[in-house]
Simulated assay, not measured.
Amino acid sequence: MRKPFKTLIALTLAGILSLTSCTAPTYDNSGANNQPHDLSSILGQAKEGLNEYKNSLENSNEDSDGQNTSNGTVPDWNITDYPDYYSVTGKADFTNANIPTTPSVINSQLDQYGRAGQAVGLIDKQMRDAGSDRSRDMPDDIAGWPSPNPKVTIDLGSGKHYRGYLFNRSHLIAKSLGGEDSVENMVTGTRTQNVGKNQPAGGMAYTETEARDWLDQNPTGTITYVATPVYEGSELLPRYVTVDIKTSDGSIDQHVIVWNTANGFDIDYQRGGVR
Rank of each mutant, 00 (worst) to 15 (best):
K6E: 02
I9H: 13
L11I: 04
L11V: 01
I16Q: 05
S18K: 13
T20V: 10
S21L: 06
T23F: 14
T26Q: 13
D28L: 09
G31C: 03
N33S: 11
Q35A: 14
I42E: 12
G44T: 08
K47R: 15
E48T: 12
E48Y: 09
E58P: 00
N59S: 15
N61D: 12
N61G: 10
S64W: 10
D65C: 13
Q67V: 13
S70E: 08
P75S: 09
P83E: 10
T89Y: 02
K91M: 06
D93W: 02
P100C: 06
T101F: 01
V105C: 09
N107Y: 11
S108F: 02
S108L: 03
R115Y: 04
A116K: 02
G117Q: 02
Q118Y: 10
V120H: 01
G121D: 10
G121Q: 07
K125V: 00
M127Q: 11
R134L: 11
S135D: 14
D141G: 08
I142D: 07
A143S: 15
S147K: 02
T153P: 07
D155W: 05
S158P: 13
S158L: 14
K160Y: 03
N168V: 02
R169D: 06
R169K: 12
A174Q: 04
S176G: 11
G178I: 06
G179Q: 08
V183R: 11
N185K: 03
G189H: 10
A201L: 09
A201E: 14
A205P: 00
A205F: 01
D216P: 05
D216W: 03
G221K: 11
I223E: 15
T224R: 14
V226W: 01
A227S: 14
T228H: 01
S234C: 04
E235R: 01
L236G: 09
D244R: 04
I245Y: 01
T247C: 05
T247E: 03
S248D: 11
D249Q: 05
D253C: 14
D253A: 08
I257D: 04
V258P: 00
T261E: 06
A262Q: 09
A262Y: 05
N263P: 05
N263I: 01
G264F: 07
I267N: 04
Q270L: 11
G273C: 03
R275V: 00
